[in-house]
Simulated scan of single mutants.
Amino acid sequence: MTNPVMNFLALALYLSAAGLLGLRLARGEVVTGSAKIGILSLGLGAVVLHATLLYTRLWQEHGLNLALTPAFSLVACVIAALYIFTSIIRPVDNLGILIMPIAGLTVLVEWLWPGRMSLPLASSASAVHIVVAILAYSLMCLAAAQSLMLLMQERHLRSKHPGGFIRALPPMQTMESVMFQMIGFGFVLLTLTLISGSFFAEAIFGQPFKLTHHMVLAELAWIVYAVLLVGRWRLGWRGRPAIHWTLGGFALLLLAYFGSKFVLEVILHR
């Protein structure tokens, strides 16, 4: 679907939600009550439009269009949806100032530079594998965004200038707890993704398993997250060490999928 009105409306809703959230956080105000409902409603409207646009662009006659820009847009849409759902049950509203503008940007980029790459779905198992992989990646992205907020909060507290939006953030202990919950759920899904991709590749994709750069980087990310969770459980890791390991694991995941696709599609034109 190349409907410019829907594209601009989705972008406008994402930016409006981020702008309203940013204004309240800049004043150090916690987002609650009707203000929170209004902001999340704008975000939900953007996600619904985003998903509607993606639906007609992703499904092709011979499979899914998972080229670089459609895949990036799909993951951003899922991340935004998870953010809205998580905001209802956990104090992660502040993540919207990072997630919403990026999701809106992917709508614009995918519209202006649509990619084409058909990924055949050999079976229903392949569809499940893709869904689990996207959810795992999305949860780890949310955890990375949370770690950036923690890093800013920690730096403000160290410099003894806890003003501005830092006043609207939950205590660091609460933010760390939420971050590790995201990583824990994401790690389980990432483990399932690697197992299914390694041992059931022929059943899922119709071809034998191959050890690619994508798989190696994803496995390295799995190791980083495993070390982080063990360090948290056995050694009580928190603060900067936890933040750095979280960002390191996500950087590897980012390279594993989008880095590989960028090299193949943009540089090598495959």
Rank of each mutant, 00 (worst) to 15 (best):
residue 1 M to P: 05
residue 3 N to W: 07
residue 3 N to F: 08
residue 3 N to Y: 09
residue 6 M to R: 05
residue 10 A to C: 12
residue 10 A to W: 03
residue 15 L to G: 00
residue 15 L to T: 01
residue 15 L to H: 04
residue 15 L to I: 00
residue 18 A to P: 01
residue 19 G to K: 03
residue 22 G to Q: 08
residue 23 L to G: 07
residue 25 L to I: 04
residue 31 V to A: 10
residue 33 G to F: 09
residue 33 G to W: 13
residue 38 G to Q: 09
residue 42 L to T: 09
residue 42 L to N: 06
residue 42 L to D: 01
residue 45 G to W: 07
residue 46 A to D: 06
residue 49 L to Q: 09
residue 53 L to K: 04
residue 53 L to S: 08
residue 55 Y to S: 14
residue 56 T to A: 10
residue 61 E to D: 13
residue 64 L to T: 00
residue 66 L to Y: 04
residue 67 A to N: 00
residue 68 L to C: 05
residue 70 P to W: 01
residue 72 F to N: 10
residue 73 S to W: 03
residue 74 L to T: 13
residue 75 V to Y: 04
residue 76 A to P: 02
residue 79 I to K: 03
residue 81 A to Q: 00
residue 85 F to C: 14
residue 88 I to W: 13
residue 90 R to C: 05
residue 90 R to W: 13
residue 90 R to E: 09
residue 93 D to P: 01
residue 97 I to A: 09
residue 99 I to T: 12
residue 100 M to N: 15
residue 101 P to E: 08
residue 107 V to T: 09
residue 111 W to A: 14
residue 111 W to G: 03
residue 112 L to Y: 12
residue 113 W to N: 14
residue 116 R to T: 15
residue 117 M to V: 11
residue 119 L to P: 00
residue 119 L to V: 14
residue 121 L to A: 11
residue 124 S to D: 07
residue 124 S to H: 12
residue 127 A to V: 15
residue 127 A to C: 05
residue 129 H to T: 11
residue 132 V to K: 02
residue 133 A to R: 02
residue 137 Y to W: 13
residue 141 C to L: 12
residue 141 C to T: 09
residue 144 A to L: 01
residue 146 Q to I: 00
residue 152 M to P: 03
residue 153 Q to G: 02
residue 157 L to P: 01
residue 157 L to I: 13
residue 157 L to A: 11
residue 159 S to Q: 09
residue 159 S to D: 12
residue 159 S to C: 02
residue 160 K to V: 10
residue 163 G to V: 14
residue 165 F to L: 15
residue 166 I to F: 12
residue 166 I to C: 06
residue 169 L to S: 09
residue 169 L to D: 07
residue 171 P to Y: 08
residue 173 Q to R: 11
residue 175 M to R: 13
residue 177 S to T: 11
residue 178 V to R: 10
residue 178 V to A: 14
residue 178 V to Y: 08
residue 179 M to I: 11
residue 179 M to F: 01
residue 181 Q to D: 15
residue 182 M to K: 04
residue 182 M to H: 14
residue 182 M to P: 01
residue 187 F to N: 06
residue 189 L to V: 09
residue 190 L to R: 05
residue 190 L to P: 03
residue 192 L to P: 00
residue 193 T to D: 09
residue 196 S to A: 15
residue 200 F to D: 02
residue 201 A to H: 15
residue 201 A to Q: 13
residue 203 A to Y: 06
residue 204 I to V: 11
residue 204 I to A: 14
residue 205 F to K: 15
residue 205 F to Y: 14
residue 205 F to N: 07
residue 209 F to L: 04
residue 211 L to K: 11
residue 212 T to N: 08
residue 214 H to Y: 11
residue 214 H to M: 11
residue 214 H to R: 14
residue 216 V to K: 14
residue 216 V to T: 12
residue 220 L to T: 11
residue 221 A to M: 04
residue 224 V to H: 05
residue 227 V to L: 13
residue 233 W to S: 10
residue 236 G to T: 02
residue 237 W to S: 08
residue 240 R to H: 05
residue 240 R to Y: 07
residue 243 I to W: 07
residue 244 H to G: 02
residue 246 T to N: 13
residue 249 G to I: 05
residue 249 G to P: 05
residue 250 F to I: 02
residue 252 L to A: 12
residue 255 L to H: 01
residue 256 A to I: 00
residue 258 F to A: 06
residue 259 G to Y: 06
residue 260 S to W: 02
residue 261 K to G: 03
residue 263 V to H: 06
residue 263 V to P: 05
residue 264 L to M: 12
residue 265 E to M: 00
residue 266 V to Y: 02
residue 266 V to E: 03
residue 267 I to Q: 07
residue 269 H to L: 10
